[in-house]
Simulated assay, not measured.
Amino acid sequence: MNDQRRMYLVLLGVPGAGKGTQARLLSEKLQIPQISTGDLFRYNLSHETELGLLAKQYMDRGDLVPDEVTIQMVAERIRQEDCARGAIFDGFPRNLNQATALDQMTAPHGGISLAPLIHLEDEEAMRRITGRRVCRQCGAVYHVEFNPPAREGICDIDGGELYQRDDDKPETVRNRLYVYYKQTAPLIGYYFAKSLLVEIDGSRPIEEVNRELLSVLPQDVLES
């Protein structure tokens, strides 16, 4: 892949659709980094970068971090050496303002290659997220239906107590879905209008979803 054309993928989908999992798998196969806003914030805050300190000022006041700060974090990240062949965006952009900024960032290298929408019904998303249980000691993740521990409420690894995170409780998940439909769902129309949207059935096993994602990637970018 030459320096001019890069593989930039924007993964879309409701919370629980598996975007993070698929981003990791694609990153391994394509040898381009996964970029998530969560990871960027954690890095900038823990390293006390200029942007991290700026973001902390807003967070300490209980305010939302402005788009401009998040956009600057992403802009700095994609200039790093490991992004020379592209990147997979997971959780960014979250709104139309961020999407237009990302277009400007990536334009010198061919722009966004594809925006796969991993489709999942709301009830299935609720089922996936609210069923998660995490070990208090080692952080191992289980699911009451799909990956239950041998003994209910007990971690198989170290015998620690399993608990449900606040983020995974039904009322919180419903609010996350509301925020998604209010802020992020408009991106579906945005990328459809640009002929970049492709819909993937996210209710299937992880391996099947990954195979289909790989099959829809633009071959001209993969081979360039």
Rank of each mutant, 00 (worst) to 15 (best):
N147P: 14
T100D: 13
R42V: 02
D90I: 07
L12S: 03
I78Q: 03
P15G: 03
E145N: 05
I129P: 03
I200W: 00
A75C: 06
S36M: 12
L64N: 11
H143P: 03
N175I: 14
M126W: 03
Q31C: 07
T37E: 08
P186A: 08
L51T: 00
Y191W: 08
E161I: 02
L53M: 15
P116C: 08
A185G: 08
L196C: 04
I112E: 05
C83G: 09
D167M: 05
E199C: 04
H143L: 07
A107L: 15
E152T: 15
K182N: 11
R132P: 00
D166E: 14
A87V: 08
R128F: 02
T21K: 01
P116N: 11
N44F: 03
L222A: 14
Q31K: 15
E50A: 04
R174W: 04
V173A: 02
T37N: 07
R42A: 06
D82I: 13
L117W: 00
K169V: 15
R204Q: 06
I71G: 05
R61G: 08
L177K: 14
Y163V: 09
G13D: 02
C135H: 06
M59G: 13
D82G: 09
A23E: 12
C155F: 08
E124N: 10
I71T: 10
V10M: 01
V134H: 09
Y142S: 13
R85T: 11
R5A: 13
A23G: 13
R79S: 14
C155Y: 02
V198K: 00
L197W: 02
A17M: 04
D90A: 03
E81A: 11
V134M: 10
P93A: 10
A115H: 00
R61Y: 07
L162W: 04
Q34P: 06
L51N: 04
A107D: 15
N147L: 08
L26G: 10
Y180P: 00
N2Q: 09
D67E: 05
L214Q: 12
H143V: 15
Q22M: 12
G62E: 10
E145G: 14
V141F: 06
L213T: 06
I32T: 10
G202F: 06
E48I: 12
T100Y: 13
M126V: 07
M105E: 15
V198T: 01
D168C: 05
R204H: 09
C138Q: 11
T184N: 02
L54V: 14
L162N: 07
D201F: 01
A185N: 13
I154H: 01
L9S: 02
G153E: 10
Y58I: 12
K169S: 15
Y8K: 15
P205N: 15
L26W: 03
D201S: 02
